[in-house]
Design a protein around this nucleic acid. Structure first.
Length: 884
RNA sequence: GGGCGCAUAGCUCAGUUGGUUCAGAGCACUUGGUUUACACCCAAGGGGUCGGGGGUUCGAAUCCCUCUGCGCCCACCA
């Protein structure tokens, strides 16, 4: 087939992706091969591809394609996450645009909108992954809200409840007043903000005296139910047992004592607002204080806020400060930096709020997950290892997980209420079961038997479960391993091999998957966790939509080709290190593709002559490269085993660019318009095929395309399912000899450059072979140096340019044009450098403690260095003598 | 406040148990080169007191202490 001179990426990419899909290379079913499995970190169903996804999924595809070439049964399960709060926020915003208020809709109506949205946009991101070349088993695509996935979630909830691990509690939670839902601690981002510390005067009841407290939140005085002082604080002894009067609302509250109060901070008097601060809640519980909640769901004030009712908390803060000041209650204001919790999704300032929530007890569940990751013989390895510390810290201080969200989009909590009492509820997988359970439970409680409850008497809890409560089951539920634990898929594919994700969800997701894995399969969910870094721009800023510094992923692919972008992303992204993304890297990736393309164009253009013998230079060249390739193969293997993908790619890059294109092809290339012998040609093709195999995981499209130019192939022979190159013995001698030869060639090139000798002009060449190197590479030196001849001599050649490699001396005769002065200068400089070097080596060797303390190997080396230096000095001296 | 980690060439980073290959790679840069696959190319070259200071050792980028500057995680004193 005629090969175009330019590589047309988009056409090629579509062609081969379709081809792979058509022949079902991505699809996997259990068989007797070793499985290699990755469950994708499911992106948000309504999301679009960003640089983080690109990096993440490129890594996964490299791993999965390599596993496929290694003959494993590779299965990469794709899917999307319903991302409850993020998606719900988007749907609410869209409805708002259409003039629809979420609160006017029934649950069913809202969910219909959400599903419409999901069907419209869901899967866009998966289509984008295809453009990147991701070889997911699309037949297995899952969504965390699929019926069977939801069923698994509910089953697990009920099971954990029955085990006594899930409980309902009236607790202080993080309330997002914009989304009107609870957030887990992990979803709250603390930001430093400039704020004020207000000093407020509270009158003492039945006295003319007053006390002063300091607060950052004056609007919460309506919720004050006590003033607290430290019992050891002598300044306030006179306040003990007294009562204080809250400004503006005039409520009388007790003055209590607790050594929780820091005497150094503020005034040493603390106002206690149990409804709106976690620590105050604790104080409140301890001292049996009243709880006054002053906020509505949207964080506007309720009727306790008196004339501020209905106004937003921040508006009230401003206005009440004014009122307090006018009435003489405000003593002073200090500016202060404090950390304010904000919602990861909506950016709203979090309000601590007391409410009924569902919690999962974590401490006991976490134990197997701690053991699995930490310690010497850990079952799960984190890459890079440094995240183990972070993991340990979190796991050993784990708090109960608040799993309920006041959202509609998600699995509805399977708790059913049937009475007025706080405990009048049951937890069940279905309403039928709930009815039965409820009747049983009620009959036990009640002395008299009442008419049985029916479906209509039960109300299901309105809250939905936290998104992560479904995704923590992901590696199991994608194989239906929760509902159907003995099925073939779960038995074959679980545990999965590698998980590739960002460290930002180490706790949200990774830790919890490990916990769930041990609880439900009694086994780890994956062997290795590869934690990628954040993608940042050149100025180290995190790439984000709001900054507008994130390039359009698909445009990048259009411009640099999918392969180019993949290589660009991986060129500089060690595991766990942030990636300083620069489009120039994609350009380099594209350039690499171009290099490989043109290399094949060269080979493809050769005429083959069956009758000419293989030149010795070509024979050696091929043998050398085969060894070089094998050496690289080992190195690549080692990098992969340590998940050093950038290093593996760089090793491949250098092998192809320098050793293959730069050296091998130059060594075997026939003269202009001359044919190549058949033996060399066949060897080069075999080498080329091996090269393509190792590049394929990184650049799947280009390599598959060239693969089919090399030969007509049946579908079974496609590159994607080819066999990874076999390992063979390495001829280290040959590699070392080439190293030496390449230095000789460099020397010749330098002389040509110095004297402006064009490559097309052949030159004479002589050598004094003090090193006794053998002649293996002579034909190659001759070819690449364009030598007339290569003579072995024993005496210095007069009137020649010289250079040395080790103690060998080389001569390029140049009668009449030798600058003797310059030669002497050059030789003198080389001599003094070598003598200095020798001195330092000898100094080391004459140090008794060195000779006594250093290992044999090191000493031998130093002795070799000494001998080399002495030989070279000898050579230099002889040359100098002949010139002077 | 507690914990973890990082600092090596202009940039991004390797450097495994202290000693061959220890001062490296890629990119960028400088110089020279083009009828013969590729200027998306080839060749050659410059460039670093290994963040500062101190210590251990025959020997330190590597181990210890300290200072400085960054990054991340956790906890949240009103």
């Amino acid at each position: 087939m005629q090969m175009p001179s330019k590589y047309d990426a988009s056409q090629v990419e579509n062609k081969w992706y379709d081809y792979w899909m058509e022949h079902k290379y991505f699809h996997s079913t259990p068989d007797d091969r070793e499985p290699y499995t990755i469950a994708i970190p499911p992106p948000n169903v309504t999301g679009v591809l960003h640089m983080g996804h690109m990096l993440n999924n490129t890594i996964q595809d490299v791993l999965i394609r390599r596993a496929r070439l290694l003959g494993k049964n590779a299965c990469w399960v794709p899917g999307t996450d319903h991302a409850s709060i993020a998606t719900e926020a988007k749907v609410v915003a869209k409805l708002k645009e259409q003039g629809i208020d979420k609160n006017t809709l029934t649950r069913e109506e809202f969910l219909k909108h959400a599903w419409d949205w999901t069907h419209e946009y869901g899967g866009v991101i998966l289509e984008q992954l295809k453009k990147l070349g991701c070889s997911c088993d699309w037949d297995r695509t899952k969504f965390t809200m699929d019926d069977e996935m939801s069923e698994a979630v509910i089953k697990v909830f009920v099971d954990l409840y029955n085990k006594g691990l899930i409980y309902r509690g009236y607790r202080m939670v993080n309330w997002d007043p914009e989304a009107k839902t609870t957030l887990s601690d992990e979803e709250v981002i603390y930001e430093e903000k400039q704020g004020n510390l207000y000093y407020l005067k509270y009158k003492i009841k039945g006295s003319e005296n007053a006390l002063t407290i300091a607060t950052t939140r004056p609007e919460t005085i309506f919720g004050d139910t006590a003033i607290c002082i430290n019992p050891n604080d002598e300044r306030f002894t006179h306040l003990k047992g007294k009562q204080a009067i809250v400004p503006i609302c005039g409520r009388v509250i007790p003055i209590i004592e607790d050594d929780y109060v820091d005497m150094e901070f503020g005034t040493g008097c603390l106002k206690v607002t149990p409804a709106h601060d976690e620590n105050d809640k604790n104080l409140g519980d301890k001292h049996k204080l009243q709880v006054v909640d002053i906020f509505n769901e949207d964080a506007s004030l309720n009727s306790f806020g008196m004339h501020y009712e209905g106004k937003d908390r921040f508006v009230v803060r401003k206005e009440i400060t004014k009122e307090l000041e006018d009435q003489g209650f405000l003593v002073k204001t200090e500016t202060r930096i404090n950390k304010v919790g904000t919602s990861e999704r909506t950016k709203a300032v979090i309000e601590p709020r007391l409410s009924d929530q569902w919690f999962l007890k974590m401490e006991e569940l976490a134990q197997p997950a701690i053991k699995a990751v930490l310690g010497e013989d850990s079952e799960i390895k984190l890459f890079p290892k440094k995240f183990e510390n972070t993991y340990r810290h979190w796991m050993e201080n784990i708090r109960d997980w608040n799993i309920s969200r006041q959202l509609l989009w998600g699995q509805q909590i399977p708790a059913y209420y049937y009475g007025d009492g706080k405990e009048d509820f049951v937890v069940a997988e279905s309403i039928q079961e709930a009815v039965e359970l409820a009747n049983k439970k009620r009959n036990v409680t009640l002395s008299a038997v009442k008419a049985p409850l029916t479906k209509e008497d039960l109300t299901q809890d309105k809250d939905a479960l936290d998104t992560w409560f479904s995704s923590w089951l992901w590696p199991m539920s994608v194989f239906d391993g929760i509902r159907n634990p003995e099925n073939d898929d779960i038995k074959y594919y679980y545990p999965t091999n590698d998980l590739v994700t960002g460290p930002d969800i180490l706790f949200f997701w990774v830790a919890r998957m490990i916990i769930a894995g041990y609880e439900y399969k009694d086994e780890k969910p994956f062997n290795n966790v590869y934690l990628t870094g954040l993608v940042r721009d050149k100025q180290r800023r995190k790439m984000s939509k709001s900054l507008g510094n994130s390039p359009d992923a698909l445009k990048l692919i259009e411009e640099y080709s999918a392969d180019g972008v993949r290589v660009g992303l991986l060129l500089s992204s060690a595991a766990g290190n942030d990636l300083m993304f620069d489009e120039a890297l994609c350009q380099q990736g594209k350039g690499f593709g171009n290099k490989i393309w043109n290399a094949y164009r060269l080979v493809d253009g050769w005429d083959i002559d069956q009758n000419i013998p293989q030149p010795n230079s070509s024979k050696i060249a091929v043998e050398w490269y085969v060894s070089k390739f094998q050496k690289a193969l080992l190195e690549i293997e080692d990098h992969f085993s340590k998940y050093r993908l950038s290093d593996a790619l760089m090793a491949i890059y250098k092998l192809i660019y320098d050793d293959f294109c730069g050296w091998l092809l130059e060594m075997v290339k026939p003269a202009y318009q001359q044919p190549i012998d058949a033996i060399t040609y066949r060897a080069i093709i075999a080498i080329f095929e091996n090269n393509l195999k190792i590049v394929h995981p990184f650049m799947p499209f280009l390599t598959e395309d060239i693969w089919h130019y090399i030969a007509e192939r049946t579908p079974d022979e496609a590159l994607i399912v080819a066999k990874w190159p076999e390992t063979k013995p390495i001829n280290e001698t040959l590699i070392a000899e080439f190293e030496f030869a390449s230095e000789v060639i460099t020397g010749i090139r330098n002389i040509r450059k110095q004297k402006n000798i064009a490559f097309k002009d052949a030159i004479g060449f002589s050598v004094i072979n003090n090193e006794k190197t053998n002649t293996t590479f002579d034909t190659i030196i001759s070819k690449l140096g364009h030598l007339e001849s290569m003579d072995y001599v024993s005496e210095t050649i007069e009137g020649a340019l010289t250079f040395r490699v080790k103690s060998n001396e080389y001569f390029v005769p140049m009668a009449g044009s030798i600058d003797v002065e310059a030669e002497i200068k050059k030789l003198t400089e080389e001599l003094s450098y070598t003598e200095g070097f020798l001195k330092s080596v000898q100094k080391k060797l004459s140090n008794e403690r060195f000779v006594a303390g250093a290992p044999e190997q090191v000493i031998t080396n130093e002795r070799n260095k000494e001998a080399d230096a002495l030989a070279k000095i000898e050579t230099l001296k002889t040359s100098l003598a002949s010139l002077v």
